[in-house]
Amino acid sequence: MTLSLDWLLDQANRKLTKEMDPDVAAITRAVITELAAEGLPVGIAQGFRTKQEQDALYALGRTRPGKIVTYAKGGKSNHNFGVAVDLFIYADGGKRAEFLAPPDPRLKRLVAAMKQHQMQWGGDWGSFPDYPHFQLYDAVNGQPKPLLGPRYPGRPLFAGAGRMDRTLIRLIQKRLRLPLTGQFDRKLTHLVKQFQRQHRLAADGIIGPVTWRHLFGVRR
């Protein structure tokens, strides 16, 4: 059974609550969208976690039965600040969560997609690698939030698409050194296709999440 993008995003939105950093939520949705097109159905196990929930998790393997799953007490996890997500891959038609570990090539693809958006990966932690964990920055230890590029609007932009934000079209035109008309016309379509060919992307003139990332990267 192939899981639809609408279903994947609906499940994700249950975890991407109002307590989540909006950029983390947008990045996670963009990666889910991008990888769904490649047949990789990504789900969210954890997003925001209260300090009380963190303390209960910390108690596992210590004062409560179970295995140790975290070394962070309440207030010491980036989940408590809404800047982190734990991701998995749906299996058995969405009935089971599969947590990936090296050397699974699917994990390598997921990590690459998240790092393209400047997300840090828990698998890089030498002392206690956390393979499902991704965070935008280390809020616990006072790391400043990184500057990000303009946010993908959540749906493809192309000539003839409805309800396009002219400000976004002007950003694209500025990036491609075109007059800032705010119109997605034939000239812009031609330049987008040319840009896509230069970056070995499907030259369809449609600006989806992958083309957007190549246009703007992760920094302003």
Rank of each mutant, 00 (worst) to 15 (best):
G154V: 01
H190M: 11
H190Q: 15
Q143V: 08
W125Q: 05
W125S: 03
L148A: 00
G61E: 09
M164C: 07
P150V: 01
G217T: 04
E19V: 01
T70I: 13
G160T: 01
L176M: 10
P103C: 04
R106N: 04
H214P: 05
E38I: 05
A101K: 11
N78H: 07
V42K: 10
P102S: 06
K145V: 10
E53H: 08
M119K: 00
R29S: 12
L168W: 15
G39V: 03
H133T: 13
Q118A: 13
P209G: 08
G94C: 02
A25T: 01
W125L: 08
Q196D: 12
H214G: 06
M20W: 12
S4W: 00
P105E: 08
D10L: 07
Y152A: 01
Y58E: 02
Q116N: 12
P41L: 06
V140R: 05
L215C: 13
L176R: 07
D23W: 13
V31F: 04
S127K: 14
R62Q: 13
R177G: 09
L110T: 02
Q194G: 15
H117M: 04
R49Y: 01
H214Q: 12
Q196V: 00
A59W: 06
R170Y: 11
Q116H: 07
N80Q: 05
A202T: 08
G75K: 06
K73E: 13
A112E: 14
E98D: 11
Y131F: 08
F158Q: 01
L60F: 10
R109W: 05
G74H: 06
Q116A: 15
A91L: 09
R200E: 14
S77I: 06
A37F: 00
N13F: 02
P129E: 03
Q196E: 14
F134V: 10
Q11P: 03
W125C: 00
A202G: 03
Y131N: 08
L107T: 03
Q118T: 15
P156H: 03
D104K: 09
A72N: 11
V192A: 03
G162F: 11
L168Q: 13
Q54A: 14
V83M: 07
F128V: 07
K187P: 03
A30H: 06
L87H: 07
R14K: 11
K15N: 13
R175H: 09
A97M: 09
T33H: 03
A84V: 13
D130N: 14
L176S: 10
Q135L: 09
G74Y: 08
M119S: 04
G208E: 12
G75A: 05
F48G: 11
Q173S: 06
H117D: 10
P102K: 07
A26R: 15
D124V: 11
F128D: 09
R220N: 08
P22Q: 03
K193I: 02
G162V: 04
D185G: 15
E34Y: 00
Y71G: 14
L191I: 00
G61K: 13
L35Q: 07
E38P: 01
G182Q: 04
V218C: 10
P146H: 05
R155K: 10
D92P: 04
L60V: 13
H79T: 09
